[in-house]
Amino acid sequence: MTAQTGTTGSPTGPVTPPPVTAPGRPDDGSSRGAGDGGSRGQAGTARRREGRAAWILAIPFCLLFLAFTAWPVIQSLFMSITDTKARDLRHPFSVNVIGLDNFTKALSDPTFRKAAGNTAYFVLVGMPLTLVVALAAAVALDKGITRFRAIFRLGFYMPVITSIVAVAVVWRFLLQDPGGLINTALGWVGITGPNWLGDPSWSMPSLILMASWRNFGTAMIIFLAGLQAVPAELHEAAAIDGAGAWKRFRFVTMPLLRPTLLFVMVTTAIGYLQFFEEPFVMTKGGPLNSTISLSMYTYQQFGFGNYGLASAMSYLIFVVIAIVTALQFRLLRERT
């Protein structure tokens, strides 16, 4: 770790430093190497002072971070290879290391597999639906209209900021079978709506609809920001060349929107793979486990006191998220 004591450390991470700092660096280095003793001493003191100040600023965060983030991450990895149960809270030494048993147990559990299938269903249907609706709304707001843009944006974004619990109260009314708002509206046009939350084949579509309603606003806002980075001149040039609206969208907007699309896809997928709140407040995973998700089942195991098993399941979810994220980066990066 001694390597990074000097001024060598250009800022880590993705962002280039502000140009202001660049000219200063060579000077710094040379004065340290060849300068006279006095200035070296002063620079050393200054650097030490800077380091001390940095640590004073970093310490509160680091302590809280270690206690409430880093430690739990490590501990859950440890728990996942033990048979920790709720009662072991009082007797931490009665815990046995059981290797990968929790993982094999989870993977061979039919309910866990059912939950994995449900989560895949939710992501594969819910994510495209959310993104298409969001993109359509963003394009319409960006290019299609000139007035009331702020009002539409505000309205579409409202579901995002509301508490899931409050949303659930309202949506249960909407989806109620006899007398719910949706089925009443369907009745006006002569359709007998299903028992949305009570029918195993309709419960998941109901939750997908609800999640898309709740989440498309976020994606829409990010798409809007991405669309505004598309230079108008390109569209004008394409229009002069005779490209229609659809062709311009397909061949001008879409390629330039690719980084935004990747970003939205990754964040949406990460969120949807942890699909939890909707079934938790609406269906408790039912009927007949038709809406139980991986996170939901993990939480149930936690509730039963099977802490080791729950930790193993949570790491399985993490692995899936990591793989899906990596795949998306691959797919969308390569073709650019």
Binding site: G13, A58, F65, Q274, Y315
Partner: peptide
Amino acid sequence: LDFRGKKVIFTAVMGTLMIPGVVT
């Protein structure tokens, strides 16, 4: 600022950005 351990802290903090809440 430049300080000893900067890289470690940065890597640790960014590394946990992606860990889902269900894990902790």
